[in-house]
Every structure is written in structure tokens, then in C-alpha cells.
Design a protein around this nucleic acid. Sequence first.
DNA 1: CCGATATCAGTGTTACTGACATTG
DNA 2: CCAATGTCAGTACCACTGATATCG
Lengths: 151, 151
Amino acid sequence: MDTTAEHRAPARLRATPSWLITQTATHASRLASEAFDTVGARRYHYALLAALEEFGPASQAELGRRCAIDRSYVVEAVNGLAENGMAVRTPDPADGRRNIITITEAGERELRKISERLAEAQDKLLAPLSPAEREQLAQLMARVLDHQTRG
Amino acid sequence: MDTTAEHRAPARLRATPSWLITQTATHASRLASEAFDTVGARRYHYALLAALEEFGPASQAELGRRCAIDRSYVVEAVNGLAENGMAVRTPDPADGRRNIITITEAGERELRKISERLAEAQDKLLAPLSPAEREQLAQLMARVLDHQTRG
DNA sequence: CCGATATCAGTGTTACTGACATTG
DNA sequence: CCAATGTCAGTACCACTGATATCG
């Protein structure tokens, strides 16, 4: 975007939390994408691998629920992971509808590699905030998110 | 999305600010879109009308810079506004490259109407936060945003 | 028959890229 | 010649919808 904002945004926008959030999210996404690119990964790789590592093998539907990714998109995401040998998809012998997705060692290595790069991106994103302020922001955001997903 | 998260998201995700932000932004966008829909408006209507009202007539390039909308998208956005009689596009007599966009009275009425609906959406989004916490969140976000846009 | 699952086809929004002609 | 502007064509990511087949 060539929108190098040497001007100030309208006060109405700056006073609208949803605008601040979506705008900040754009920068967050760009920085995260750059981090993913350095290891040839995608956004959903990180999410799915994190879920598989933390909770163990899971069905695609459960992965979608965990990571807030739509079922239809989980299909493509798992395809990508399987093609790159980061996860394995096998039918569930106990339930003919399900697939069981399992993370591989390569997937676990990839997850750690992505995490390092992503941490650098977080640092760039939150550069102007102190550690305490970063924590505060994360807490507030998590509460808003919990309310939207659970409440 | 049918991802009714009765499960908890992976700790790695919840510890990643960019994930929290983009996730929250998804909900913010949805709530804002619903608000826009009630008055038949779009996201960029609000942004452009707000800039036109606050700073007066402007070129498309300047509107893009103010609102952080790409030039190529401003074209379509202004088309939409002009078709609905909310703004007028005239060539700049002083600079043959530029158009001058001016808000109409209908546009100003529309802006106020959108603002009301949008305020309700903010309330739904930030429901779990106290007024002080909402202010805190806005401040933190604005600082992050300023750092990303100004450098 | 109902509900969940995996899959696929398709839509809509929006950020972004690259190209182009025109003008300063 | 270079920079800015408006415009257009096209890409990519992702949320979301709806349909379908299968299975419990």
C-alpha cells in the first residue's frame, strides 16, 4: 500500500475501536506473513501445528473449532501440511466420518522455526509498547475475544 | 463460521498478539458489517465520508492516504459514493491529474446515521470491558498503529 | 430421520501488485 | 526525465454459504 500516512486519520475513525483493531490487524497480518514467508509457511500452518502439538492427534472438525478456522478451509490447510510432510492424515478406524490428523517430527521442527520468526514479528508490531503494556493489550484483547466466542 | 469454540485455543496462539488481534478484528469486522448493512452502507463509506466531513473536499489520493485505503480501491469506493449521491466527483481546474471529491448533504446525513449504528456495534464488541478499559485498549492500539504508519 | 463429518464449488471483501495514460 | 494521479486488470488470503456424500 502506498498510503504512507503523513496525514492524520479522521477523528471519527480514530475514535472507532473496530477501525483501530482492523487497521492494526492489517499491519499484524503483514508482519506475520513476512515471518511465515521466511520459512515458506502459511498462516494456518502455525495454527494447526500448534493445536496438534498441544492437544495431540485430532479430527479436522476439532482442529477447526480449536483454531477458529472454517471446516472447508481446514481441508485445504491439512492438504498443504500433508503435502509438505508436516502432518499425516489417516481415516479414523473408530468413526468412518473422521480423519485423524497427526503432527510429524518435521512438523514439530517447523512449528518451532515458525515460532521464532513470529516472535520477531511480534516485536516489530509492538515496538512502541513496554512489556507491561504488551501484556495489558493481550489481556484486554483476550477478554474481548472470549466474550465474542463463548458469550 | 460454525466454529463455536467450546474448546480452548492452543496456548501458542493465545500467546501471540498478532493472532489475538487478527482474530478480534474478524469479530469487529463482522459486527461493523452488520451495522453497515442496516443502513445499506459499506465499510469505506464511513471512512471516506468521515474524511470528507472533517477535512473538506479532497483528491482521491489524499483520501486514500488519510484513510489508509489503496488508490485503486478509492476509485471504486468513490464510484459507490457518487452513484448514491453521497459525494460529488469533479475535475480539479488547478491540476489536471486530480479529481476533487466533495461530500453532499445526503452524505453528511448518511455519515451521522452510520455513526449511530456503528456505536452500537462497538458496544457489542467491547461489552466485557469497562469504560476505562475500553479507553486503555484504544490508546494502546492507537500507539501501535501510529508506530506502524509513521515509523 | 437427524446430526456430524469431510469435501467441493463458489461468493464477497479487501489488501496488494503492476501496468498505463495523463499531467505537473 | 521524474513524480504524482486516476484508472484498470488481476492476484491472494480468508471468511462464509450451500450443496453433497457418508457415516453414527
